[in-house]
């Protein structure tokens, strides 16, 4: 399935799905992020969703109409035709099983196709993407309690809560976590994938237009979970290169010891970013190994019992040792 056709389909179908949303809350339409996918992966997700929904509406809408019409039509006051003993019809039963079966078969076919298209480990849809000819940008993602650490092994830099990637390049993400499971998600951009301690998961996306998105955790991981956001900035290649150079010049180095301080439970309200040069080459592996050896970063009692005070502290406290 080639991408341009897909986008056309999405453009055509989008208003259909958006209509009720518009009616209900026109003012917040802009906030309904999933109706504005960016990039091929999210585009494919939207595309498949729309086809699936429309296929299902083929059966849902008539059934809904019947649900409304039958009780009205056959209300006792209307004296419509009444057949008290009619309780079986082979034709209707065959249709009742057959039509859903046909529709479900089609949906199954479509959804399996879709699964391969957006498989986060190796999205089929990115195989022929414009950026596929260039080497991918590799980013290692470590979810701590409750911040995101992004390590760029090829560039030798690291950031907190700030994912910067060049446009027109495929981005490969490798994820793990320190002590709790988190869900990595950038709506409109990348599929949701869990970041899990002692395990490694992956995600991938490519965006061709510079833009800024918000990402966050989707899997509850404790008291600071609601604040666990990060910004995703897609910038032109040249800007990315100069940004990398500026971070490389940063004197803060992300050794494993420095990381252990960062990984202490911290609420980074407002997702204030921090930048590091020369991260430990094997930081990702060391975090995974530590998790496998049973290292956890326990949340101090003060955070759990009186987190209201602490989230305030967290907002003022430096997000990272600088």
């Amino acid at each position: 399935m080639n991408p341009p056709k897909q986008r056309r389909a999405s453009l055509l179908l989008k208003p259909l799905l958006a209509l009720p949303a518009l009616l209900l809350s026109g003012c917040t339409m802009a906030g309904i992020r999933l109706f504005h996918p960016a990039g091929l992966v999210a585009g494919a997700e939207m595309h498949y969703t729309l086809i699936l929904v429309i296929t299902m509406l083929i059966i849902i809408v008539p059934t809904l109409l019947m649900t409304i019409i039958f009780p009205l039509r056959y209300h006792h006051s209307r004296n419509a035709k009444y057949t008290p003993d009619w309780h079986f019809s082979l034709t209707i039963e065959l249709l009742a099983w057959g039509i859903p079966f046909a529709i479900v078969a089609f949906l199954c076919y479509l959804t399996i196709q879709g699964v391969y298209a957006v498989n986060p480990w190796a999205p089929g849809i990115l195989a022929n993407a414009p950026g596929a000819r260039q080497p991918p940008i590799n980013v290692e993602v470590i979810a701590t309690d409750w911040q995101w650490v992004f390590v760029y092994p090829d560039q030798g830099i690291a950031t907190i809560d700030d994912l910067v990637v060049p446009s027109g390049r495929v981005v490969h993400l490798q994820m793990t976590a320190t002590s709790n499971m988190n869900g990595f998600y950038i709506p409109q951009v990348a599929p949701m994938v869990d970041a899990m301690p002692a395990m490694e998961s992956r995600d991938a996306f490519e965006l061709d237009q510079p833009a800024t998105y918000t990402g966050f955790s989707t899997d509850f991981s404790g008291a600071g979970f609601s604040w666990m956001q990060f910004s995703t900035r897609v910038v032109p290649q040249a800007e990315f290169d100069s940004w990398v150079a500026s971070v490389q010049a940063n004197p803060n180095q992300l050794t494993y010891a420095a990381f252990q301080k960062i990984a202490q439970p911290t609420v980074n309200a407002g997702a204030k970013p921090a930048y590091f040069s020369a991260p430990d080459k094997n930081l990702f592996g060391e975090v995974m190994t530590a998790a496998m050896q049973g290292v956890v970063y326990p949340v101090p009692d003060s955070f759990t019992k009186r987190v209201s005070d602490n989230s305030a502290q967290g907002a003022q406290a430096p997000a990272s040792p600088q």
């Binding site: 056959y74 009742a96 099983w97 199954c108 959804t111 399996i112």
Partner: peptide, 27 residues
Amino acid sequence: SAATMLVGIPTGVKAFNWLFTMYRGRI
């Protein structure tokens, strides 16, 4: 995914059967 969708078939059948119970009834 596919196995989950299969649940839609018998559930749909149930919905149709209730609808056709109402059909030509005295509600």
